[in-house]
Design a protein around this nucleic acid. Structure first.
Lengths: 340, 340
DNA sequence: ACTGGCACTCGTCCGTAGCGAGTGCCAGCA
DNA sequence: TGCTGGCACTCGCTACGGACGAGTGCCAGT
């Protein structure tokens, strides 16, 4: 499949025009809007080749061409540079994130910022517990048979769970329990805690054992199994931009997918270091999202990654701009986290 | 405006048929589907009166009638009884809510349940802090100049905030601070704390005063001003049911409104004891939601109310069924909270 | 290898016509 | 007075058809 430079230029032009106008682009308007230096007829020949190779297609016989998912893929991989951010955007990011007091606050501001800048649906994963370490465990007596377990992670995440003890327990024992779990668990990565928690039970003195057993169950449940990941979402209203043209007329499947945490995690939770992942249309494993594209990346203090964030929009999106924005936001959030 | 019994029966029939079929209903099909005991011509006369009074209208000259917001209002107020729940629904509610371990868990399960049962968008407000009392305040040292403040409310809500101290502080002082704030604040309603917090600063011994001042600022910020309310949302995909007929073809304004916490709070946060509030179309103060109806109520342990919940859907909704479900769910949630 | 020319396709945009659901009105009847 | 059957009328919906035009594929010429 010999795609010479001009054919690639034609593809790039088609993608850019289509993204801008939302309308199939024909050979004539292409040569008018771009300095290709050749006639429409030549462009048509190139188009025929591009279509044969599966990079573009005609919605109708007598209409212009539209990029296919494969065309977008080629465009993203080889035909586009990441746009530098405008100073205005840069300022917007700083202004938005300065003044966050809280991890919750950071996440909420970030997701709104992303939605606003990209004008698409934004998704931000809270710092993953699996990638966090225990900073402190607190046990707060609620009544004689109830404790509130509060776990503070080094990433700023705070989780709490009610612990229903098998029987009443004196205040001194709570102090002991608190000391024991902290001694054992502080500083360890959450993913490595299960054996340590088991050890806590095994090693505990007899009169603490029942309480410790219950506590360990809750610990494992809270820290490892349930709730493990949290997600923030914003900008769903942006799905309605571009009328009903994107998403083949029905937002239903998209909205359904966005309600499933599992799905969202799959989209943005598998971040690898310093990569921006772009999933275009069909490449998406989730059926409901075959008409959408996802741009995602990881974020974290310094070089480590503690979570993912990204945006979801129509396959017809401004990839260079979106990629730039997603990266920039991720970097700023990382810096913000590093300050903790 | 003399609306005799038959005219009311006609209105009721129109509402029921329109809700069921989503199509304007004509005089002929009305007499066929309901035992009104009169001819279509008579029904037509009644319809003319109902239209004159503003309870129904014709989308087009040659089409059947559709209820107006005013018509729905009359229907809800005088023409419908709250449907008893089916045993299946009752079981669904119990099954769904049993096994919740956490306030977070309760809220999430509730909002999903509501969305599923009513097939509409569900909104649940977390127990309002303003209506909660302080159960315990915990201060966890993160570093020598940083504390994590954790507030546990009697409603189960847990809020945390990072406190940046003006200077390093020894562990003993943290203990003192903890004791002082707890002695002063535990048991008081959140809305009554501000003067007490101020008193804490005024009364504190000199060497604790700087730390206490900072702490008091954060306390006031966290507990009273910011974040004060939290909201959970589910079922947005249900907005797409009924094609694009509801909401006059554009989900945009609805989705935008749903992204604003303030708006949602206005919708469901003003609950009064044992009332179910129904807002129909125009009655809604929020412009974006003029095409929608909201059914909401308060919930809480026993007779007290700590928060609101409700659903949002097209004005063309099954009011009796929706009202019944919203009430039932609110009652179950209240019972669940009472167990704490 | 590129270009201009040309025939062809086909979606879009009217304008027209027939259909039919539904109405309003009226005269007649209990 | 209130209900009914009958009837003319409205008007949205669908189908049909023709003009238009953007866009294409192909081919012969440079």
């Amino acid at each position: 499949m010999g795609l010479d430079d001009r054919k690639l230029a034609v593809l790039r032009a088609i993608v850019e025009d289509y993204v801008a106008t939302q309308e199939p682009v024909g050979s004539k308007s292409l040569v008018e809007r771009h300095q290709l230096g050749v006639s429409p007829a030549t462009v048509r020949n190139d188009m025929a080749v591009l279509e044969e190779e599966g990079y573009i297609r005609q919605p109708h016989t007598s209409a212009g061409r539209v990029p296919t998912d494969r065309g977008y893929r080629l465009f993203v991989d080889r035909l586009s540079r990441v746009k530098p951010l405008s100073p205005a955007e840069r300022r917007a990011i700083e202004r938005f994130l300065v003044g966050a007091v809280d991890l919750d606050d950071v996440v909420h501001r970030t997701v709104r910022l992303l939605a606003q800048l990209t004008r698409q649906v934004a998704v931000v994963q809270y710092p993953s517990l699996a990638r966090s370490s225990v900073r402190h465990l607190e046990l707060v007596p609620i009544s004689t048979t109830r404790l509130m377990l509060v776990m503070i992670a080094d990433t700023g995440r705070v989780e709490q769970r009610l612990v229903e003890l098998p029987g009443p327990i004196p205040a001194d024992d709570v102090t002991d329990l608190r000391r024991l779990v902290n001694e054992k668990l502080v500083g360890t990565r959450l993913s490595e805690t299960p054996p340590l928690v088991q050890a806590l039970v095994d090693e505990s003195v007899p009169h603490l054992r029942p309480a410790m057993t219950t506590l360990s169950t809750v610990l494992l449940e809270t820290l490892v199994e349930r709730h493990e990941e949290r997600i923030a979402l914003a900008g769903t209203a942006n799905l309605t931009r571009g009328g009903l043209l994107d998403f083949q007329g029905s937002l239903r499947p998209i909205l359904e997918a966005l309600e499933e945490e599992v799905v969202l995690l799959k989209l943005i939770g598998e971040a690898e270091p310093s990569t921006t992942r772009v999933l275009i249309g069909d490449e998406n494993e989730i059926d409901n999202l075959r008409a959408a594209s996802v741009v995602s990346t990881g974020y974290g203090p310094g070089a480590t990654i503690v979570g993912g964030l990204g945006v979801l929009g129509p396959t017809r999106m401004d990839y260079p701009g979106t990629i730039a924005t997603v990266r920039a936001v991720a970097r700023y959030v990382g810096e913000l986290l590093a300050q903790n």
